[in-house]
Each structure stands twice: as C-alpha cells, then as structure tokens.
Design a protein around this nucleic acid. Structure first.
Length: 425
RNA sequence: GGAGACCUGCUCGAGUGGUUGAAGAGGCACGCCUGGAAAGUGUGUAUACCCCUAAAGGGUAUCAAGGGUUCGAAUCCCUUGGUCUCCGCCA
C-alpha cells in the first residue's frame, strides 16, 4: 500500500498519477486523508485518557504501600470512571484504523513517470525487439499437436488425475522441464542471486504482504482446513522472507532466486488463446527478487531487464520487450516490463516474463526497512521478475525449432538436457 | 496423533502482580587512553503511532500473537502459532 505520508503531502500529484492507471476512485484519496485526521484525533483523546489511568494506578500502588486504603479506594473509583470513558473511544479508534487500511489498500501503486498512458495491451510500448522469427518447414504444427506427436505432455491424463489445465509431462517433456529449471537457476546464481527453495503454500499474512490478498483471493487455491494458500508465484514466499525486518544498509541489494511450481485458478479463462501450454493451472517458474535501496531500484530494474533479455538471447528465441501502459499494469506495480517470445506456429507473441519495480508499495505492507546513512529507518524497494516461466517458453522452443523428424534444442540446453534434440519415441 | 517443558531487546540471560522499555553480560557505535593496535575505560545502542516542534521535550502501545482477570500484568487465566523432549506413526 502507499505510504500515508506521501499521499498526504502530494495529494494533487497522487491523483494525477493515479489517472494514468485509469484509477476510477480518486475520491478514496480524500477519504483516506479524512480518516487519518479522525484517527489522529481519536488517538490523542485515547492517549491522554489512558495516561490519566496509568498515573492514577501508580498512585494507588503508592497509597496501598503506605496503608492508606481509603484514599486508594477513592482513586479506584476515579479510574473506573476514566475507563468507562475510554472504552467507546477505543472502539472508535480501532474501527477508524481498520477502515483506514481497508481504504488505503484499495488505492493502487503510483505509476512511474516512464509509464505510457493507455487502456489495454494494445497501448503497451514495444521498447525492444530481438532474435529472428524462424522459417518453419511445410508440415509445421502448433505445440499442442507436437506434444502429442512426440508424446511428451499428456493433458488428458493430467485431467484424469486432477482436472483440465494440469499437464502431465512425460519422458523428454519432463526432462526438458528439469533442464530448463536447472539452467535458469544456474544463470541467476551466476549473476549473484542467492537460491532459495521456498514452501509452496503460504499463510494469510504472506499472501497479504505481496498483495495477493485481499483483492486477488479468487486467483489462489485455498487449503481451507489449514487456511494456507498454494503460491501463485514464488515471489510470495521469497519476498516475505524479510517481512517485518529491518536490514542493514550494507546488506542491500538483497538478490534472491527461487524455483517453484505456481498454482493459479485462472477463473474465467477459456478458448483458443489458452489452448495447450498457453495457460495452465500449474506450471514451473524460476523467479528473481531484489530488495534495494530506494535510490537504486530503477537501476536494479534495468539490470533485471538486461538479465532476462540475456536469458532469452541464450535460448535463441525471437523476443520483444514491452513497457506496460497504465491500464495494463498490475495494481501493485510502479513500472513493468513484459517479455514476450514469438510462437511461430501460432503466429502470436506469448508472455514469458514480467519484471516490475514495486517501489515501497509491497514493503510498506510487509514493513521491510533498513537504516539509512543518517540512522533513519526507511522502507526498501522491492522488485521481481520471472526468469522464466516455463510452459510458454517450452511452447515456443517446440514450435520454433521443429524439423521434419525432431525438435532441435538451443545449444545452451544440450548439457542440461543430455542431448541436442527431442526425437519421436 | 498423545504427554510434558518452553517462547523476554541485535544475542545470551534475570525477572512470578506495583515508577520494568525491562537488571546483568556479550555484541555493535562513538569517545578517552596509545606512536599504532590490543587491553582498559566512559557514553550510547528498539519499533510504531500521537502531541509539540527550529531543536529539545512529552505521551500511548509493544516481553511470540490475540483475548481475559485486576485500580495495576513480562509476571495470573484462556485461545492460536512456534520451539524443544519423550511416546506413537511414517517417506
């Protein structure tokens, strides 16, 4: 959530920038400010009354010590009256505070000045395009046919085991998953990221910390018996590692990477767009996360973008980098770059990574702070990106590299996969 | 799953109802001492919110989390979470 202080001091600017995100309820900003005023008033009233209670209680203690029971009784009555007054104030204070946070979390992060105006995906700005679109041979087919021809992903049996959208990888298909995960992790570790293997379920506090709760509850699988959520991305457990902590300035930037399966309900998706591996309920992903000094986060974002780009280049895939427009960005992001690879047989671009700077929006909720040069406690900035999500990369690798009787893998994967190509079994 | 012990500040650790935000030790920071360092020595060392603010100052809350008893709770009671030990079960 946004920092109250920022919101109060730059009300006009906040509203202007929210407009870039097509935010429909700018009046929430005014609401937050008036709730905060109310909160302060109540807080002062509560504190001063509580102070009277505290000092009277101390006096009672001293009177009792001196054996002046009657005087103590008089004080006790006084305290009882004060406490009777305190109760409704306290109730109002709690109510106001919770209404304040409820309102504040409904206001999205402010877009950075680099974010272009726009309403939908078509308004995103292509900032870079690289690699070459392959020329496919005559009998080329989309990946959902290839996986059957080569018998490497079995959706039908996955559906039998769980439901639609839960692919069962088999043989070379399973091994390719493992090879890619291993390669991506090694690539990230070489760039200074520390590897983590996090829990695949998280509690409510963690889901709230990265912003999946309260607004995106329906997107996560929920284990009701234990009140755990299956993670939609390892960003959730990994960013939460430092929740409620104050780190030392010299620890920054903290660079973390993690592999995890990701679970997404994807309620409401259907149709050709989501065929095959284009959209599934469970998929493998390697994520990178950084916690940085607030002055360094955009520098870090550029590094992360270059890092992911290098990965796509090494996979010899045609790709492009988009800067998302205000209307297409996520609620919590200040600036997002999406990476898409070209799927030659489908003749469309598929998103394989989304790399964002959240500034202090997430860390304000999670209270991840550091001590700056002057000894002041400040929020760090958080960033994350996929490097990479597997299914769509796999779709592209299969489609773009298909030959008459085999699928040739990029050189960088040969040692991880153990062979240079996938053959029909 | 059953039985029990426990959860205090950066760390260790005292504290079983009354000026305890919390003794003591260690660590860390700064100063003194030193040619320099070690040793020694002095001082400081939480977070959030609020009032007042130029600064200083003051208040409230926080001893796993939440609730309760009490004029008063780190201390008593309840719930939840976590750690450890023993038993059971198990990849």
């Amino acid at each position: 959530m946004l920092q109250l202080q920022v919101l109060r001091q730059n009300e006009r600017e906040v509203k202007d920038r929210l407009a870039v995100k097509n935010f429909k309820n700018p009046e929430l900003v005014d609401e937050v400010i008036s709730l905060d005023d109310q909160r302060k008033k109540l807080q002062l009233e509560y504190d001063t009354t509580q102070q009277q209670v505290n000092s009277a209680s101390k006096e009672i203690g001293m009177l009792m010590g001196k054996g002046e029971k009657d005087a103590a009784e008089v004080k006790k009555k006084e305290v009882a009256e004060l406490k009777a007054r305190l109760q409704p104030i306290n109730e109002q204070l709690i109510a106001t505070e919770s209404k304040l946070t409820d309102t504040l979390v409904q206001i999205p992060n402010l877009p950075s000045p680099l974010v272009p105006n726009g309403n939908s995906a078509s308004d995103n700005e292509v900032v870079k395009e690289g690699g070459e679109k392959p020329g496919l041979h005559a009998g080329s087919v989309p990946h959902w046919d290839l996986i059957k021809q080569y018998d490497i992903v079995d959706f039908e049996t996955g559906a039998k085991l769980t439901g639609s959208g839960f692919p069962l990888y088999k043989g070379a298909g399973a091994k390719l998953q493992r090879a890619l995960v291993q390669y991506f992790l090694d690539y990230n570790i070489a760039a200074g990221y520390t590897e983590y293997l996090p829990p695949f379920m998280v509690n409510e506090a963690s889901a709230y910390g990265t912003g999946q709760l309260p607004d995106k509850e329906g997107q996560m699988y929920h284990m009701q018996l234990d009140n755990f959520y299956m993670i939609p991305t390892s960003e959730v457990p990994v960013t939460n590692i430092y929740r409620d902590e104050i780190v030392k300035a010299e620890q920054l930037p903290i660079k973390m990477t993690a592999y995890s399966p990701c679970f997404r309900r994807e309620a409401g998706s259907f149709g050709k767009e989501v065929r095959g591996l284009n959209r599934v309920h469970q998929f493998e992903k390697v994520e990178i996360v950084q916690l940085t000094h607030p002055d360094k986060s955009y520098e870090a974002l550029d590094q992360m973008v270059a890092h992911v780009e290098g990965l796509l280049k090494s996979l010899e895939s045609p790709y492009r980098i988009l800067r998302l427009c205000g209307g297409d960005m996520s609620f919590t992001s200040a600036l997002t770059y999406d990476f898409e690879v070209y799927s030659a047989a489908q003749e469309r671009w598929l998103e394989v990574s989304s790399t964002s700077n959240f500034e202090s929006y997430q860390t304000n909720r999670m209270k991840i702070r550091f001590k700056d040069e002057n000894g002041k406690t400040q929020l760090v900035h958080s960033l994350n990106g996929s490097s990479l999500a597997l299914p769509r990369i796999v779709a592209c690798l299969l489609e773009n590299n298909q030959k008459e009787n085999e699928i040739v893998l990029p050189a960088v994967l040969h040692s991880y996969f153990g062979k240079s190509a996938i053959q029909k079994s």
